[in-house]
Measured scan of single mutants.
Amino acid sequence: TYYTVKSGDTLNKIAAQYGVSVANLRSWSGISGDLIFVGQKLIVKKG
């Protein structure tokens, strides 16, 4: 599943919304830090 980052989103908010960890969200999407951008597509795998 892809999630497109919206204004005001954080990795914590997105992870909580999908019931996954921030570490997994980073790993799946190839992100090393906490910086995400509006319009960026993140990969989300539901448990």
Rank of each mutant, 00 (worst) to 15 (best):
K6G: 07
I31T: 05
Q17G: 07
A16T: 10
G39R: 02
I43G: 03
V5M: 02
G30D: 10
S7Q: 14
L35K: 13
G19T: 05
K41R: 14
K13W: 10
I43N: 08
I36V: 09
V20F: 03
K6I: 09
I36G: 01
I36T: 03
V44S: 02
S7F: 14
L42Y: 01
I36A: 03
V44C: 07
K6N: 07
K6R: 10
R26Y: 05
I43C: 13
L35I: 14
G47D: 14
F37W: 11
S21F: 04
G33N: 10
Y18S: 05
L25N: 01
V20T: 09
K41D: 07
A15V: 02
Q17Y: 12
S29K: 02
D9A: 01
A16H: 12
Y2L: 10
V20E: 08
T10M: 04
G33W: 05
L35W: 10
K45H: 13
V5Q: 01
L11K: 00
S21K: 06
V5L: 02
W28G: 03
S32D: 14
G47S: 13
S32M: 12
R26D: 02
V44A: 03
I36C: 05
S21A: 07
Q40E: 07
V22G: 03
I36Y: 03
V44M: 06
L11A: 02
A16I: 11
W28D: 06
Y18G: 02
D34R: 06
K13I: 10
K45D: 11
G39L: 03
K13E: 11
L11H: 02
Y3A: 03
S21D: 08
A16M: 12
V38S: 07
A16Q: 13
I43H: 09
T1Y: 14
I36F: 06
T10P: 01
V44N: 02
T10N: 08
S7C: 13
R26A: 09
A16E: 15
V22E: 09
G39V: 04
S29V: 05
G47P: 15
L35S: 13
R26P: 02
V5W: 04
K41N: 09
V38N: 06
V5D: 02
K46G: 14
Y18E: 06
Y18H: 13
S32C: 11
V22S: 06
L42V: 09
A15L: 03
I14T: 00
L42T: 02
D34Y: 08
S32E: 15
G39A: 03
T4H: 08
Q40V: 05
S21T: 14
Y3Q: 02
T4K: 07
A23I: 10
A16Y: 10
S27L: 15
Q17V: 11
L35M: 13
V38C: 08
I36Q: 02
K6T: 09
I31Y: 04
I14K: 00
S7G: 09
Q17W: 12
N12S: 14
Q40T: 06
K45F: 13
S7A: 15
V44Y: 04
I14N: 00
K13L: 11
L25E: 00
G19V: 04
I43A: 08
G19N: 11
K6A: 09
I14R: 00
T10E: 05
T10V: 04
G19Y: 06
G39D: 05
I36D: 02
I43V: 12
K46M: 15
Y2F: 12
D34Q: 08
Q40D: 08
L42W: 01
S27T: 12
D34C: 11
I43F: 10
T1P: 10
N24M: 13
G8H: 05
S21C: 08
Y3C: 05
L35G: 11
A16P: 02
Q40F: 05
I43D: 04
K45I: 11
N24T: 12
I31V: 10
D9G: 01
A15T: 02
I43S: 07
F37I: 10
I31Q: 04
T10D: 08
S32F: 10
K46Y: 13
V38K: 06
V22P: 08
L42E: 01
R26F: 05
